[in-house]
């Protein structure tokens, strides 16, 4: 069943590709005009042979990479390649899944995220997360933003903070008169921007985004993408996306993952290629990357 879905998705993306073409993707690269050096000087996350297990099943094997400060890093790859799993290990959200385990070394500003004395609560406060489906709380818009600062006992002027975060999330003008209204009254795209506002309210350092636009229409997607460009000035962003055009449009660096199928037919995710988005999309080193971004497999 899953196999079938994947192959359908592959067909889908290949037909997308044949109409838009690879050159269009390449032409839209670097739209926010930042120079991306080959090497990363200011490392936020350092991964060395990171492996993620669910019980006996190895979902991600041997990932070694670095993620740079104030950069947007995109994880792309076919379904089941472990990119979301890897993302969730950055802020220890995998801890919530019984049996999940991380091996290898995953450091955040040099500190081991999985050291025994590390409090996952503290990790998650600094490394925020935006999920695939906008998961607003069943509360008012104001309370959605104020929740994080409250539980973290931040001493702030809450009204100012709420306004500031909603403004940064490009939502303030749309909701300023309805702050007491239920967040469920908002559209999907507005809800996702509210989730981003809620995330930056705890003043994190990193924002992890797990397919943030998967459930949004193209207009809402464009707004969230603009917002990401804007936020990259202050935050480090790691985004998982199925949409290669999105990765090409917004990211500074791209990591391409794929799934190896072992002799028993089990899929294990692995990192194939990682580098500045421009080189990944215009001159990939690995033939598998080339095949994927040109839509020959998905």
């Amino acid at each position: 069943m899953k196999q079938m879905r994947d192959s359908e998705a592959a067909k889908q993306s290949s037909s997308d590709m044949s109409t838009t073409g690879r050159m269009d993707v390449a032409a839209s690269l670097g739209s926010h005009g930042r120079e991306i050096p080959e090497t990363i000087s200011n490392v936020v996350f350092g991964l060395d042979n990171v492996q993620v297990f669910y019980g006996d099943f190895q979902a991600v094997r041997d990932v070694s990479m670095q993620i740079g400060r104030n950069e947007i890093t995109a994880f792309i790859g076919p379904s089941g390649c472990g990119k979301s799993t890897l993302l969730r290990s950055f802020n220890r959200m995998n801890d919530l899944i019984p049996g999940a385990r991380v091996a290898g070394s995953l450091t955040y500003h040099g500190y081991d995220v999985y050291a025994p004395n590390v409090d996952p609560i503290e990790v998650r406060r600094r490394i925020g997360m935006v999920f695939q489906k906008p998961n607003v709380f069943p509360k008012s818009i104001y309370e959605n933003v104020a929740y994080g600062p409250k539980v973290n006992k931040m001493k702030v002027n809450m009204d100012d903070l709420v306004e500031e975060c909603l403004t940064r999330a490009a939502l303030w003008d749309e909701v300023k008169d309805d702050l007491k209204k239920s967040a469920y009254a908002l559209s999907g795209g507005q809800q996702q921007r509210l989730v981003i506002a809620r995330c930056i309210a705890v003043k994190p350092d990193v924002i992890l985004m797990d397919e943030p636009c998967a459930s949004l229409d193209p207009i809402a997607t464009a707004k969230v993408e603009d917002l990401m460009q804007e936020l990259a000035n202050d935050y480090t962003i790691v985004i998982v996306t199925h949409n290669m055009q999105q990765a090409a449009r917004v990211s500074d660096r791209t990591a391409f993952f794929t799934a190896d199928v072992d002799s028993a037919g089990v899929r294990h995710g692995r990192l194939v290629e990682y580098g500045p988005t421009r080189s990944i999309f215009t001159a990939p080193n690995d033939p598998r990357t080339e095949d994927y971004i040109s839509g020959r497999f998905g």
């Binding site: 802020n91 997360m129 929740y147 995330c199």
Partner: peptide, 8 residues
Amino acid sequence: HGSLALGA
């Protein structure tokens, strides 16, 4: 998950 991801 949304709440836990905020450090609650």
